[in-house]
Design a protein around this nucleic acid. Structure first.
Length: 516
RNA sequence: GGCAGUGUAGCUCAGCUGGUUAGAGCGUGGCACUCAUAAUGCCAAGGUCGGUGGUUCAAGUCCACUCACUGCUACCA
């Protein structure tokens, strides 16, 4: 039971095209999912689209198409981004699917049965952009238009009856849950924010709308549709088969990790657990917030014209380099800066020069001097032992870092060993040993190849194309590539035939006019 | 205004419970090597650890104050 691992991304709102933030979250989640699979976990990895709500209706109107057609068209773009980026999600959920309606209506019924849903009138200033109501005092007049003070978005007077969720009732239970599960919200700074927010007190939540119909109908009151967050958050249990307790995927609930952007912490760490408590369902184990990406420190926006197209990036640098850069350069959980120079720097320095060239220089010697077979492992010297131990320790280090999703720390540790190996290789100078001590040369080459095997295994979550290729070059069998095999027990066997070496990462050569 | 966090080499960051000459990677300069994707290795330059004042035999590392930036939150309007 503890072996299962359910990881989700947030579901994306498809009223536009996927942007870099979506890609980042998906690739990070995928790296974690792959990591867990390689570590022997039974993984369920979910992503999808959140397709209801007024903004979709308005976008469709603007484009002059049916809202469902808009949803279908754009959802497909998000779905297609997965394979294009090498994501291995097991399911792609759309909130417009029938299975999701069933789940939403059931969780609603359960919350209602628990006495947490009531009907009331909610007059107020509503901001479509923010999807939120504001009190009179939270708005001000700007010219003849009234806008929300905090966000500056236009608001309109709405007076409608709405169903409410008794969020206020869950203040203490939530605080208790946070206290009992210190790892529930990460990074810690987000946890502090949420705790202080909830400590201040919670007000009941409007959870239905009557002003539009593009949503999940409220059971027994079809003139209402569910407010976007009841609908959206529920996707996580829909995908597990809820409400069918016997569904094969129900074993994955509660989620091991909801990976989200820092902008939606409150929904995932306050509303969602409260809904689940109300419905009598188990709560997710962890919610982790990643940061936002900036273009050289500046927020990306259409008006600034500095938006980065994820698919273009993947094609330009390759999905390995694109993913590696984002996961290595940015401390996971913090904001990060993106630039062409930075990604080229990582690609050339870390991938092509450090790792790619290490594989190339060692394997080409093996190819030329050891008949293209795994070299003989002679008596190990202290420096051999030292290097190998460092490599064999990586799995444990990686697991420890994964405890708080410090993906950058894992890559850092792996590349420390790659650097050590280059130093080792230069120090041992097998090209010189070739003439003076061929036996020793073979041992040095064996040690280097064995370290590469470990590196190959460990980089699989981060280099979905190149890592398998490296393992192919070392003739590591497909069933010996999990973390359990990153041990000396499964070390390369001398004499095994190897394929001809080939480059893992081409260097990125600047073309004219690049760098902007 | 309140709460939280950040501020260490040109850049991105490590520095645990205070203790020898403050570290890494990238970038820069020089040298070496030639197995390798003009790759790699070695050496060097570069920091009054935001500021001030304390505690201590000893402080990036603790305390107070202060400046700048970030997030959450409140209020003012």
């Amino acid at each position: 039971m503890t072996n299962r691992f359910f990881i989700s991304t947030a579901i994306s709102y498809p009223n536009g095209a996927p942007h870099l933030g979506h890609a980042y979250e998906l690739m990070a989640a995928d790296a974690i999912a792959r990591f867990m699979r390689l570590d022997g976990r039974d993984v369920f990895f979910l992503t999808g689209t959140d397709e209801h709500g007024l903004k979709m209706v308005q976008t469709a109107e603007k484009e002059g198409i049916d809202v469902r057609a808009l949803a279908d068209r754009n959802a497909e773009r998000f779905r297609a981004m997965g394979p294009a980026l090498g994501a291995t999600n097991d399911d792609f959920i759309r909130t417009t699917e029938a299975r999701h309606y069933a789940a939403c209506q059931e969780i609603w019924r359960r919350m209602e049965a628990n006495g947490d849903i009531y009907l009331a009138s909610y007059p107020g200033w509503y901001s479509v952009r923010d999807e939120a109501f504001y009190g009179e005092d939270e708005t001000r007049l700007e010219g003849d238009k009234r806008i929300a003070i905090t966000t500056g978005t236009p608001v309109e007077w709405v007076e409608e009856e709405s169903y409410f969720f008794r969020l206020s009732k869950y203040q203490q239970p939530l605080l208790d849950y946070y206290a009992a599960n210190p790892g529930f919200i990460g990074p810690e700074t987000r946890r502090n924010e949420v705790v202080s927010f909830v400590t201040r007190g919670l007000t009941d939540l409007s959870v239905s709308r009557k002003t539009f119909t593009w949503g999940v109908p409220v059971p027994g009151a079809p003139e209402h549709v569910m407010y976007v967050w009841v609908d959206a958050l529920t996707n996580y249990i829909t995908a597990c088969g809820f409400p069918d307790e016997a569904a094969p995927r129900m074993k994955y609930w509660p989620a091991s990790l909801h990976l989200i952007g820092k902008d939606i912490v409150r929904f995932h760490t306050v509303y969602w657990p409260a809904f689940l408590m109300s419905a009598g369902l188990p709560l997710p184990e962890r919610v982790f917030c990643h940061g936002f990406l900036t273009n050289r420190g500046e927020k990306m926006s259409k008006s600034l014209g500095n938006v980065v197209e994820p698919m273009t990036m993947a094609e330009k640098y390759g999905i390995d380099a694109f993913r590696y850069f984002l996961l290595r350069e940015i401390s996971f959980g913090q904001d990060g800066s993106y630039s062409h120079e930075a990604i080229v720097g990582r690609l050339n320095a870390d991938l092509a020069n450090d790792l790619g060239n290490l594989a190339q220089r060692s394997l080409s010697m093996v190819n030329k001097n050891c008949e293209g077979r795994v070299p003989a492992k002679g008596v190990l010297a202290d420096e051999d032992r030292l290097l190998l131990d460092a490599a064999y320790s990586l799995v444990a280090e990686a697991r420890a870092a994964m405890g708080d999703f410090a993906l950058h720390t894992i890559l850092n540790a792996i590349w420390k060993v790659v650097g050590d190996t280059n130093r080792y290789f230069a120090g041992q100078a097998p090209w010189a040993l070739k003439k003076t001590d061929p036996t020793r040369m073979e041992t040095v080459l064996w040690v280097t190849a064995e370290v590469l095997r470990i590196v190959g295994i460990l980089t699989q979550p981060f280099l979905p194309l190149a890592a398998p290729k490296l393992l192919d070059l070392l003739a590591v069998p497909a069933d010996r590539r999990s973390f359990a095999h990153a041990d000396q027990e499964f070390a390369l066997e001398p004499g095994v035939a190897l394929p001809a070496p080939s480059a893992l990462f081409p260097r990125y050569i600047e073309t004219e006019g690049e760098g902007a």
